[in-house]
Design a protein around this nucleic acid. Structure first.
Lengths: 271, 271
DNA sequence: GACAACTGTTGAACACGTTCAAGAAAGGTG
DNA sequence: CACCTTTCTTGAACGTGTTCAACAGTTGTC
């Protein structure tokens, strides 16, 4: 299932872009730039460009990103034009395209922040709870908490993330750092818990939980109930089920079924 | 989970649009037209237009749809411009917009056909098999068979269907006829089978199987393996699991768990 | 047949995302 | 310093989906 990779209340970017852009430090140090390009199979894309990022460039890049995210928040994604972003940031349109391959690529910045915010919010739970179900429940709710302010336009560019060939797809290689980071959270959920889990299942569980999380996000995106309370209920209902299932995983009687599931996962995973 | 509602090899529309468009009969009798409009909550949309559909209009409408689908198949969705469709159909651009609210709305026609084709293909299985697992397996494979020729661009406009506010979303009210039809197939899978199923589960099962089908479609859309064989394996692996689970549903020991699941579904369903 | 009220059709015009050739600024090298 | 190379910046121009005011065709009414 597809889904917004992460989520987070970036309370940064509160002051308009006008003045001093943050010093080049922090997030966004990543190298990824050369778009994998969607399209059909048209020969090798001869451009692993890899830009060196001088100081000035980094500054402009941040300025454009801040401005874009602010406008997205203020007006929504579709309603924010590239011209508006450029104008507000005080640069030419073309300049934005020098740093970001497309309007969609601006969203990646959003993901990265929300991922980080989810991590932080999850940490609070993971440091205090030992019970598996409580940990899982806390982490899932934290993820939704962090995404909540963006529900209205998360849906809008969820659309964008849904295209398999899009670099924004949670399954794309371009988002694999974010994906790994997300899976790591669920690994922590398991490892720090007191739960006794079948070892084979334990190995696969972080990824499975992440997948379940993607499912929850997907549900959330479609959730039109006030305050998305149906999603909250889904979490509260699903967690005990998962907990029970995981607990049952060590029962002799269910071994064959578990094996069957694990074998299936394995079969599917190898190409 | 989002997913292409249906699928089908429309072998109709083989002769180019040039000559006589089919007589207004057949599919597409539906009334739905007044778009729900996405956007924010901007007052009531004062237009439940409901067009009467005269004969001539219906003819033009069909012509435009045929032409569009043909071009989509030949060149892909993104590469087909509204201007090209209009030109090829011998009408003005604006005319296409008289019949279809947007380019995306042309896709709905595609869905409807594929839905019908899936029904037909499923029938063949349902008429010969009695075993639940075999029926389910057959129906799922039939659905993929029917979609196969369109895999390359199904992905492209899967993106479109993914947006929750889009009328193309499988969960939207605008696609509810297609959705109901799809669920009906799974109802037949169950009712015609020899399987003994807990009655409460039985009531919910068609919708659950449809949901699973949406999951399979989602997987298929993302499946890049040659011939999408991973999807085939997924089906072959998941069906026995579902079968086993359904069979177990009548066991006394698993009653509480089943109840828990059904209660969850109920909770979530009511807003 | 005259008139009105639709349904159906047109193509220019608009705003948007994106590209690109041109050039300015900054760094590096002798 | 002069020079070359690389990074960065510009804005006009292109092709796209979509809109809209105008007009044509059809149907119904007296």
């Amino acid at each position: 299932m597809t889904g917004v990779t992460t989520a987070a209340a970036d309370s940064a970017a509160d002051d308009p872009g006008a003045g001093t852009p943050r010093s080049a430090a922090g997030e966004e140090a990543g190298p990824v730039k050369a778009a994998a390009r969607g399209e059909a199979a048209t020969e090798a894309d001869s451009s692993p460009v890899e830009r060196p990022r001088r100081a000035r460039g980094e500054q402009t890049r941040q300025l454009i990103l801040e401005t874009a995210l602010r406008l997205f928040r203020e007006r929504g994604y579709a309603e924010t034009t590239m011209r508006a972003i450029a104008k507000e940031a005080g640069v030419a349109v073309g300049n934005a395209y020098y740093y970001f391959d497309s309007k969609e690529h601006l969203i990646q910045g959003f993901y990265d922040r929300n991922q980080a915010a989810h991590r932080v919010a999850a940490e609070r739970v993971l440091n205090t709870e030992k019970d598996f179900a409580a940990r899982l429940r806390g982490v899932l709710h934290a993820g939704i908490d962090v995404n909540e302010p963006y529900h209205s336009f998360a849906a809008t560019f969820f659309k964008t993330a849904a295209e398999p060939s899009s670099p924004l797809s949670p399954f794309s290689s371009e988002s694999s750092p974010a994906r790994e980071a997300a899976i790591a959270i669920f690994r922590d959920v398991i490892e720090g818990s007191s739960a006794k889990i079948d070892p084979e299942l334990r190995r696969e569980l972080p990824e499975l939980l992440w997948l379940a999380w993607m499912g929850v996000v997907l549900f959330w995106v479609y959730d039109r109930s006030p305050g998305q309370r149906r999603t909250r209920r889904l979490i509260d209902g699903v967690v005990p089920l998962v907990d029970r299932l995981v607990g049952l995983s060590r029962l002799r009687v269910l071994r064959p079924a578990l094996r069957q599931v694990l074998a299936l996962i394995d079969t599917i995973r190898r190409d």
